[in-house]
Amino acid sequence: MSDQKKYKLPFIVLVATLIVCFFGNISLGSVSIPVSEIAKSLTGFSDNYIVLHYRLPKAFTAILVGSGLGISGLLMQTLFRNPLAGPFVLGISSGASLGVAILILGAGISGSALAALLISKWSLVLAASIGSFLVLLAVLVVSTKVRDTMAILIIGLMFGSITSAVVSVLSYFSSAQKLQQYIFWGFGSLGNLSWNELFIFTLIYAFGLVLSIASIKALNTLLLGENYAKSLGLNISQSRFIIIIATSLLAGTITAFAGPIAFIGLAIPHMVRQLFITSNHKILLPAVFLMGAIVMLICDSIAQLPTSDYTLPINAITSLIGAPVVIWLLVRKRKMLF
């Protein structure tokens, strides 16, 4: 079909850019490593510790985080027919924050001697997962009772407000040191994931991705609105459930492993819509995957401040780089496509 020809070139460009960004990301860092050494490490002729156990897992994490957040943003924008929706509208991020806040701040308040021991990498991931899962469960239970999709959006936002309030209360009673620890988690981080952690991350991510791909037809039908979709034989409540589960698996695990990463989920689908000028999810989904991964790799490369010893919070970079790009695209096209 002419469709596939029309989008072939942009896809080739995106894939090529992704490959370049991937290798660029691995080549850049605080420690300057010659390209030949990196090539040797990647092909197995040398085992440079930094490349194999720090930069490579970090680059993979960036790809998973960027593409996953982009896709869950796309799902939420179509489901809620709202261009401002993102992966965190269902309260996933605030749920994760609550879990982590209770772990770090709550443990500090209770003054437990064990507290310091408790706060390991895995316990953070676990607390974030449990937190976002519980908030999501609450939203899902309510959503089975509510027919209106817009109401679910509001309910998600309300749960978000409640959890943020609890986090505020906890912060108020916490020591400066604990607070700092919590804020550092909130900056987001793509690094320090071991290969084992990355494996589990990828597993859950893949499950969410498969559900997203399975929803492509339903998402396209939903472009007509729920009533039309129903008249086309779509099982709305079932599709809605699958889309919400897919989003929570993607956004939930990403938040658990990398912290609440702002902006990507909201912005990437808009960037792709502006570039591809279509709302067909068969095109959008793979394009969002590639674009999300590319943008995240670039943001991470910048956050590393190559050749310097500093690493900036990834959360700040995604907004600093991403927001102007979206503004520029919208001003240039003068139209909010959806």
Binding site: T78, R81, K217, N220, T221, L222, L223, L224, G225, E226, N227, Y228, L232, G233, L234, R273, I277, T278, S279, N280, L337, F338
Partner: peptide
Amino acid sequence: EQPASKNLTVFELVALGRQP
């Protein structure tokens, strides 16, 4: 009601009628 998204071509929108 109007379609939720109007960022579809006429052909794409009509083709959604083939979904079943």
